[in-house]
Amino acid sequence: MLLVIHRRHALGLIAAATALPARAFANVAPQRSEIRESLAKRFTDDGTEGTFVGYKVEDYLVIASDTVRSGEARLPASTFKIPNSLIALETGVVEDPDKDVFKWDGVVRPIEAWNKDHTLRSAIAASAVPVYQEIARRIGAERMQTFVNLLEYGNRNIGGGIDQFWLTGDMRIDPVQQIDFIDRLRRGVLPVSKRSQDLVRDIIPTTKVGDSVIHFKSGLLDAAHGSLGWMVGWADKGDAPTVFALNIDCREQRHVADRMTLTQACLSDIGAI
Rank of each mutant, 00 (worst) to 15 (best):
D105T: 14
P241Q: 01
R74L: 10
A73G: 03
E37M: 08
F147T: 00
R254M: 07
I139E: 01
R23G: 11
P30V: 05
V213Q: 03
G238R: 00
E95P: 06
G47C: 09
E112W: 11
T48M: 12
P241E: 01
L39M: 14
A40Y: 06
E37H: 09
K208H: 10
G160L: 01
R137K: 14
P175W: 01
V232P: 06
R8L: 13
H215F: 11
N115W: 15
A123P: 10
L246H: 02
L3Y: 12
G169K: 15
H9Y: 15
L39R: 00
A16R: 07
F181Q: 02
A15C: 09
A128L: 01
R36T: 03
G210F: 12
W166N: 05
Q164E: 15
P30I: 06
W114G: 05
G47T: 07
F216V: 00
T242D: 04
G12P: 10
L89S: 01
F52Q: 03
L190G: 06
V209C: 08
T44D: 15
D269P: 13
L199S: 01
K41L: 13
D198Q: 11
R74K: 13
H225Q: 12
N27Q: 14
I35R: 02
A235M: 09
H118I: 05
K41G: 12
M144G: 06
V57A: 05
R23I: 09
G271Q: 10
S193E: 04
T51E: 03
K103L: 15
R251N: 10
N149R: 12
L167I: 12
W166C: 11
T119H: 09
N27H: 15
R184P: 13
D46R: 05
A10Y: 03
G238K: 01
R195N: 07
A77H: 03
G160D: 04
L262M: 13
A19F: 13
T79R: 06
I5Y: 08
V101T: 12
D258I: 05
S218K: 03
T18L: 13
A19L: 10
R201K: 15
D59N: 13
E72Q: 15
D174T: 04
P241Y: 01
E72L: 10
V93A: 03
